[in-house]
Simulated assay, not measured.
Amino acid sequence: MTVIELHDAYIMQDVNTVLQKVTFALEKGEFAYLVGRTGSGKSSLLKTLYADLPLPAGTGSVVGFGLPSSMGSSGSDKVPYLRRKLGIIFQDFQLLFDRSVADNLLFVLNATGWKGKARKQQRISEVLMRVGLASVAGKMPHQLSGGEQQRVVIARALLNEPLLLLADEPTGNLDPDVSDSIMKLFVEINNAGTAVLMATHNYQLIEQYPHRVLKCEQGQLIDSAVTPFALS
């Protein structure tokens, strides 16, 4: 199954085109990095993939859903269903600091239509255990370290058993040892069958855990599977 497919896609940032004629596919269970300088289009590409930005030209589908076009409402009514099949991981965590870890996760389950108190509590326990945080459900986010907060964010992204994880600089604010433990967690999740597309500036991680690399450069997306290139 193809989880991402773009063909001649244009990626916009405000009113500027940052990437043009982007064509690539990512298969179920595949892992790819997304690299490039600040402002090269990485975050805008990810936002387009989770339908936060419309697709102004070209075609695209993610986990079987067509991406909404800026030319009309086509696909926009399917965005909530698309996002239920995705896990989205942000660099700045975006946790709700006025409620416990468990209530952060419960908020997502309620928003995505889960029913049954016991079933929801069980799912929260399952994802926290999976990221190695079985004991923090009752804690507030500010009581956790940066690495623990990022693990909660990953747990949140796993709640709906996504086919695809989109991660925007998930280790950008973490020290090297913590970054490595987070990376190992991504590898485990990927080995269990979830596709991962991770934007990163951390070339050391890429060398340590080599996978396909997509590079945003001068308005183009270069794919190491098609055109091998040096990272530097």
Results as ranks from 00 to 15, higher is better:
residue 128 L to R: 01
residue 147 G to S: 12
residue 151 R to H: 13
residue 125 S to T: 15
residue 116 G to Y: 07
residue 102 A to M: 09
residue 147 G to R: 07
residue 114 W to D: 10
residue 139 K to S: 11
residue 149 Q to P: 04
residue 108 V to C: 05
residue 103 D to N: 10
residue 144 L to Q: 04
residue 140 M to F: 08
residue 135 S to C: 15
residue 95 L to Q: 02
residue 151 R to I: 00
residue 133 L to Y: 09
residue 144 L to E: 03
residue 136 V to G: 07
residue 148 E to W: 08
residue 120 K to C: 13
residue 139 K to G: 00
residue 115 K to Q: 15
residue 123 R to F: 03
residue 97 F to V: 04
residue 135 S to A: 14
residue 141 P to R: 03
residue 115 K to P: 09
residue 120 K to H: 09
residue 105 L to Q: 00
residue 136 V to A: 12
residue 111 A to L: 10
residue 142 H to D: 10
residue 146 G to A: 05
residue 139 K to C: 08
residue 147 G to V: 14
residue 99 R to E: 04
residue 144 L to M: 04
residue 139 K to Y: 08
residue 140 M to R: 04
residue 105 L to N: 02
residue 121 Q to F: 06
residue 139 K to H: 09
residue 141 P to M: 06
residue 130 R to D: 13
residue 95 L to A: 00
residue 106 L to K: 04
residue 134 A to L: 14
residue 138 G to F: 11
residue 138 G to M: 10
residue 110 N to H: 13
residue 110 N to S: 14
residue 142 H to E: 08
residue 127 V to K: 05
residue 132 G to C: 12
residue 99 R to H: 09
residue 104 N to K: 00
residue 118 A to Q: 12
residue 133 L to N: 07
residue 107 F to V: 01
residue 151 R to E: 10
residue 113 G to S: 13
residue 136 V to M: 11
residue 103 D to C: 04
residue 121 Q to S: 09
residue 143 Q to C: 04
residue 99 R to S: 05
residue 98 D to W: 12
residue 95 L to T: 01
residue 108 V to P: 07
residue 97 F to E: 09
residue 138 G to L: 10
residue 101 V to H: 04
residue 133 L to S: 08
residue 108 V to M: 13
residue 96 L to G: 04
residue 123 R to L: 03
residue 118 A to W: 06
residue 122 Q to L: 14
residue 103 D to V: 00
residue 125 S to H: 13
residue 138 G to C: 08
residue 98 D to I: 10
residue 146 G to E: 07
residue 125 S to I: 12
residue 150 Q to G: 01
residue 118 A to I: 06
residue 113 G to T: 15
residue 97 F to T: 00
residue 109 L to I: 14
